[in-house]
Write a protein that binds this DNA or RNA. Structure first.
Lengths: 114, 114
DNA sequence: TATTAGTTCTACAATTTAGTATGATACTGC
DNA sequence: GCAGTATCATACTAAATTGTAGAACTAATA
């Protein structure tokens, strides 16, 4: 009951933090989510998800430097913790293992490589 | 808002239905879930999840034949619909794409093959 | 200095997902 | 036909996830 599972949205957000690296601040993450998933996302839900991920110990954050852009409030930059990375890895491994047991979804053949 | 997303548990259950084929009935699915995930699962939650998946159009079911086992009530056998398969495939593709953008998680190298 | 843009933050509400409890069925074997 | 077992079924509850609205901060530009 207290297994700290990741919801689908949470998992994607966590992944995006990893992918974006230094650029992982809420607004950018929301944009990127939309770009990659096609699904709309609101900045608010991204925020609450980031908070939850922080509480679960999967993320940390710190304020970045202000930029020279108009409206350049300081950004809060998120980064993945070791726990976060572990969670992503084991989620990935579990899924790969299941997919590979299901013929039409198997990843072995590299059919997904572009 | 009405995007028919799959929860984490739902997705795994759907996958197990695919994997189990003719053997995909609630009890077996619950057992298999436990075996593969290590997490406990109750038959009741598997049932309600199967129902939900059916409502979403990802599964259908029909009663099987009684077996010659003691207590052999007829089983309800579930199977994946085309929609279900599509949902699994696109969920897989989306994840593969994200993982491959995140160096430590990339699946390209086949490092996961046993 | 007023306006505007980019952004964070918070508190709450809505929805969805997962789990419980309990009862009903259907069959085998004695 | 009674006891026992495997299984389905239902209705409800609880918990977790996701979304909304809106205020507030910061800096640039006009």
């Amino acid at each position: 009951m207290k297994e700290t599972r990741l919801g689908e949205f949470e998992e994607v957000i966590l992944l995006l933090v990893g992918i974006l690296g230094e650029e992982a601040y809420a607004f950018k993450i929301a944009e990127e989510f939309q770009a990659q998933s096609g699904r709309a996302s609101s900045i608010g839900s991204v925020h609450s998800t980031l908070d939850r991920l922080k509480e679960k110990g999967f993320l940390t954050s710190e304020m970045g430097q202000p930029t020279a852009e108009r409206g350049g409030r300081r950004k809060r930059i998120y980064s993945i913790t070791a726990e976060g990375k572990t969670a992503l890895t084991s989620s990935r491994d579990f899924r790969l293992s299941l997919w590979n047991q299901y013929p039409g979804l198997s990843v072995d053949q590299l059919s997904f490589l572009s």
